[in-house]
Design a protein around this nucleic acid. Structure first.
Lengths: 209, 209
DNA sequence: GTATCAATCACACGAACGTTGTATTTTGGA
DNA sequence: TCCAAAATACAACGTTCGTGTGATTGATAC
């Protein structure tokens, strides 16, 4: 059974070279391609594909947000990010958004077909460097105080109030600091925890004790 | 040791009658009284009291919101609501806001001093009718399908998505209904669960499995 | 002795959320 | 068959949140 693939990539030349690369191989077929996240969202609600190759840097809506939106409607859709750089934040954002694979473009040509097949087979193709970043991050955030994502005392304190449903103003009042400071702390916590909202922070906190 | 009491009540006559009632008794002393929630909030950050008697129906900020604000700053402060009616919603809102006692005004004169002492001693003075409402509500919401606060199928479904951090629009897309409908369902769920935000709903959901 | 980090504060903007109120359609029992 | 509950939908409004960007101060590390 041929794996049906879609590509979302804004630069026409790159897009076309990937399409032809895929269509020269056996077992995979690129049936549609889009230049923007918005087009992909519209198009992919009508066309069925198994795998989406998604550029991260897109004009308008980012590839990460596009994946997030696609996965809500089609949880079974497998998404692989195509990117120029191995940016740690981007990796986590992509995984959190629902992507399962993450490869850099320059490495793509040789490994792309293999990666698509791995992805479709339930794997998560990515470079060892990226894999290592993930393994490190998932090694309990709280048990290694020296880990890059460890929270400061103040942040822990605020997280605990945040997880009880306190509003920013209430946290500020309780700690005798300004709302803006609360905002700053929370913003940084979110980066460290790889979450994007209070809800996700609460979920992460409650599920890790 | 005399229990120091504050009263928040907008009607001057009632307020004064409570003050003198308290000050004629032994072991308790009303040291301040306020006509609005706002005054109480300002005043009670300077004056130390053990117990606050709080009217619910106040002009401007409600007594419930006042309690919520007070408890953030002074978690040890004991609050008892004074009210005209035994309204179920009000009871829960008050308890959720941090009040520990809840008595109706007409019953107050005879029982007030006793109630203040119970409250200060770690008890939760309230009428048997109110106590029953609470007991009923806390009898696992999910194990009695006939309970007044049981969620409908659709609501459960939406709660589950809500607890995963989905946005309203994403929930709407996933269930093929409009955002407005999602809004309506969530609003009703909040009433049934006695919560006021997504965060509290998540906390309640995750902590009851 | 100068980077780096933690903690603080500020402000503007748009997105997401919660409230209130109204109204229609569907559906499952009595 | 008729009613009540459930599900659906719309709208307008104010509040709360999250993001982006920038800045200052004190402590610690190198």
């Amino acid at each position: 059974m041929t794996i049906k693939v879609a590509i979302v990539e804004d630069v026409q030349e790159i897009r076309e070279s990937f399409v032809s690369l895929i269509n020269r191989a056996r077992g995979v077929r690129c049936i549609v391609s889009y230049g923007t996240a918005e087009e992909a969202l519209r198009g992919l609600s009508d066309v069925h594909v198994d795998v989406v190759l998604m550029d991260i840097e897109l004009p308008g809506m980012s590839g990460i947000d596009c994946v997030r939106a696609l996965k809500v409607k089609q949880p079974a859709l497998e998404c692989m990010m195509l990117t120029m750089f191995e940016n740690e934040e981007r990796v986590f954002q992509s995984l959190a958004a629902g992507a399962s694979g993450y490869i850099v473009k320059r490495a793509a040509s040789g490994k792309l077909i293999e990666a698509i097949k791995e992805l479709h087979g339930g794997g998560s193709p990515m470079s060892p460097q990226i894999a290592r970043q993930i393994v490190t991050a998932f090694r309990q955030p709280f048990s290694f105080p020296t880990a890059a994502n460890s929270l400061t005392k103040r942040e822990e304190e605020i997280l605990s109030l945040l997880s009880k449903g306190y509003r920013y103003q209430e946290i500020a009042d309780a700690l005798f600091i300004s709302v803006e400071t609360v905002r700053t702390h929370i913003h940084r916590m979110y980066e460290k925890l790889h979450v994007r909202s209070r809800s996700e922070a609460i979920i992460k906190t409650l599920q890790h004790q």
